[in-house]
Nucleic acid binder design. Structure first.
Length: 604
RNA sequence: GGGCGCGUAGCUCAAUUGGUUAGAGUACCGGACUGUCGAUCCGGAUGUUGCGGGUUCGAGUCCCGUCGCGCUCGCCA
């Protein structure tokens, strides 16, 4: 990396080695720590690139400089001039090199110093461990000084740079799309922005540039990409927040495998560029149906087995009411799970209830048949179940009996939980898989209408178009879409689809979703216009950049990979957003705040 | 919106069944010290126990409310 010399420094704090002896240099940075021996003063000087020890010896720097050195405190910002010298050995001949530092063979013998900034005692030091996240977020600028955090920012930049470089080499253009856009009826809750010019009207922040990128295809841009901020006003989780970043891309004249091919090459570039590892291509495909059936999830973690076994037919032959009456009964085999105590298995049942299950049936595999739990109800079919599941003595069987949706949710989550809790050794560090053939639509019993599983612009598979006129739940739910998700270690890291490029089909889909012609014009008129005036077949995908950085850095906290993240309540603890605004700002936009009455409590 | 957990010195934590003046490490301040790198040694200062109310002779501790933070279910096309 080329480093820019300035009047403050000739080198960075991570740069100098024994080969630089006896060069005259100037470094600038933060005082990471100081060790004052009365005579010698040692300063560890830190910048983005590393740490270099500076020694102030009154015999070589003079009294004035030495006095300043003694007054330095942590996190002051200084610039130092001196010579690079070997650290040598002590009087007993022991090397004074420090193996913990990349620059540990050398030090700077200071000749001059400039204090560029002082600092009071900081709320915490970059080297402090275990500082609460609340403190770290309030003083994020200090938190980000930690080498680990700077490294994450570097990796994040490296990632987006590889994305831009690779896609650029494949003919993609990065094109910006509006941040102030139109609220969409489907999907997540929008963040809204009032319009001053049009009182009573609102922009929405984009949930994704979906429609714009499709229209760019209509425009003949052919290959579009953008690293873009997206906004969804929904409650956060450990791995998601309301404001997040996507690598968005779209291509013309393609079908599913064309998009997948580009994305796989990009993935391999990222893996090589950042982790120095090869991704073996092609990445395997699994259909949605198989993923749900086998792993209970549409984003299966393939690093370990513990697959779901369907024993509905066997369960229905028992006299066990729970099994007999359930629409679906599945189980997983927990290797060596007999070791679990009654308290632990009871705990699992409680835990299962949080996912809407009525409970979780377990039993242990003994030498002959089942033991404990629901054994007495199902022992007559023990041989059949053991044969189907391949369970061995000492294993634990966990059953879910319910509607398919609940069975899959509970066992899918249980699989992940047990892999964590029991420390089941992964078969690989990283397991990529494409999940394909998603259902296009799902019937929403509460709203009594069909909803799009991916989004309403996803193309159904070619041989299923005739089903779009049906309104029968079974028929409509059987329509497969040209949608695909790239899944890594149980995390959806990219998702996309081939889009509908014919207006007649798009209209049919809107109708199926219960959006009448008038609403179609009002909400999506511009898209329909675009499709009407010559749209090429097109499709694309979006990568969750934050999640990629999390995986590359091995963190499960999204806030670790965002420079200035938000808390669970959407607050920025550093700048204090969101906050009230001036009356003037409210007047300009004709907004009156109407809060429910609230108990006044002084701020903590 | 629901469930669970946390909130004590700048920071990380402790404080027995509710019981004396709320402690420790570190950071900080002063002093000593010429090869440290978690420097060392001597000395010092440091509190709205998140906030409000209640129970009690007595509350960091128990109860109610509230605020903040985290995990999570719902939600996230």
């Amino acid at each position: 990396m080329q480093h820019v010399q300035t009047k403050f420094r000739s080198h960075t704090c991570g740069q100098l080695r024994s080969g630089d002896i006896p060069r005259k240099v100037q470094l600038a940075g933060w005082v990471d720590s100081y060790r004052d021996h009365g005579g010698l003063v040692f300063i560890d000087l830190r910048d983005r690139e590393g740490v270099t020890q500076v020694v102030f010896d009154p015999d070589s720097c003079g009294k004035d400089v030495h006095d300043i050195a003694r007054s330095l405190r942590t996190e002051w910002v200084i610039s130092v001039e001196g010579e690079v010298e070997d650290r040598g050995a002590d009087d007993k001949g022991r090397s004074l090199h420090n193996a913990k530092l990349a620059t540990g063979d050398i030090e700077i013998r200071a000749r001059a110093i400039t204090v560029l900034s002082q600092s009071p005692t900081p709320p915490f030091l970059p080297s402090d461990e275990g500082v609460s996240e609340e403190r770290r977020l309030k003083y994020r600028f200090i938190d980000l000084r930690r080498p680990d955090m700077l490294e994450t920012l570097r990796v994040r930049y490296q990632l987006t740079r590889i994305m831009r470089d690779f896609l650029g080499s494949q003919g993609f253009w990065e094109i910006e799309t509006p941040m102030l856009t139109k609220s969409t009826p489907e999907g997540a809750r929008d963040f809204i922005v009032p319009s001053r010019h049009q009182p009573g009207n609102f922009y929405a922040l984009p949930q994704s540039p979906q429609l714009f990128k499709q229209l760019l295809m209509v425009s003949g841009c052919d290959k579009y990409m953008q690293i873009v901020r997206c906004f969804r006003d929904e409650d956060p989780r450990a791995d998601r927040q309301a404001e997040f970043t996507q690598l968005d891309l779209e291509m013309s004249f393609v079908d599913r495998e064309d998009v997948i091919g580009v994305v796989e090459k990009l993935t391999a570039e990222i893996w090589k560029g950042i982790l120095g590892k090869e991704v073996s291509l092609p990445i395997p495909h699994i259909t949605y149906d198989v993923a749900m059936d086998t792993y209970g999830s549409d984003r299966p973690d393939l690093r370990f087995d513990m697959q779901l076994h369907n024993i509905t037919d066997i369960a229905h032959t028992t006299d066990f009411g729970v099994f007999k009456s359930a629409p679906m009964v599945k189980c997983i085999v927990v290797p060596d799970g007999s070791k679990m105590t009654r308290a632990q298995t009871d705990g699992l049942a409680e835990w299962a209830k949080t996912f809407g299950a009525k409970g979780l049936a377990v039993t242990k595999v003994a030498a002959t048949g089942f033991d404990t739990g629901v054994a007495k109800f199902i022992n007559p079919v023990a041989a059949q179940i053991i044969e189907r599941t391949g369970a061995k003595e000492g294993d634990l069987l966990a059953f879910a009996a319910d509607k398919p949706k609940v069975v899959h949710k509970v066992l899918g989550e249980l699989r992940l939980k047990l892999a964590r809790d029991l420390n089941i050794k992964p078969k690989a560090d990283f397991a990529f898989v494409w999940v394909i053939d998603f259902p296009a639509f799902e019937y929403d019993a509460e709203e009594k209408r069909f909803v799009a599983l991916h989004h309403p612009f996803t193309a159904p598979k070619d041989d299923e178009l005739h089903k779009l006129d049906s309104r029968e739940v079974d028929v409509v739910e059987s329509i497969k879409a040209k949608a695909y998700d790239l899944v890594l270690n149980g995390s959806e890291v990219a998702g996309g689809s081939i889009r509908i490029h014919r207006m007649d089909i798009q209209s049919k889909v809107f109708s199926l979703l219960g959006i009448d012609v008038e609403a179609q014009r009002a909400k999506f008129g511009f898209l329909l216009d675009g499709l009407q005036f010559g749209a090429p077949p097109h499709g694309g995908i979006a990568f969750g950049v934050d999640r990629w950085v999390m995986l590359l850095r091995g963190t499960d906290n999204i806030r670790d990979v965002i420079a200035f993240p938000k808390t669970q309540s959407g607050a920025d603890l550093m700048c204090g957003a969101p906050s009230s605004i001036d009356d003037r700002q409210l007047r300009d936009t004709h907004i009156r705040v109407n809060l429910p009455p609230k108990v006044e409590t002084p701020k903590a």
